[in-house]
Amino acid sequence: MAAESAHERAGLHRPTRRTNVSGLTRAILVIALVGLLESIYLTYIHYHGISALPCFGAHGGQSSCALVQTSVYSKLAGIPVALLGLIGYVTILATLFIRGELGRAAAFGVALTGFGFSAYLTYREIFTLKEICEWCVGSALMMTALTILTAIRYLRAGS
């Protein structure tokens, strides 16, 4: 009993918890960086009007990725969704440098928003455009993973 108290007093449990949290943070960092690189590429493609995106589907001689990314759903109030994704990933990365509950809550909030909007865009791809853009699905999957990881990170931090 006395030994256990001394163990706790010495803070020997803390390194275990810290490892878990930083492991999550590292995973979030890696996924957000991959997402950022992809969104930089898609934003570049968008502004340079490059339609030859490597993609599996084809639509009347047009790549299905190009079709999705030039569709009416490719912009939100005039802003390309690829650029919005880029802003989202940058924001998630920035929140990793904010200490405490605020940073963790903000990371989760941004990831959840990205996840929700990505889910809507995926719905539009499948049911309205009837075309799949692998790049967009990739980003949607990354946002899903980020939402789960940032939620765990937030809830676990104070437990």
């Binding site: 509950e101 909030g109 959840l112 928003t113 929700g116 909007f117 809830l155």
Partner: peptide, 21 residues
């Protein structure tokens, strides 16, 4: 409560984005 608040705020933003889109 903060977690719920963040979810509610995200839902509002998502719904607004979908409405615009």
């Amino acid at each position: 409560q903060i977690f719920g608040g963040v979810i509610a705020l995200a839902v509002v933003v998502i719904v607004a984005a979908i409405a615009i889109s």
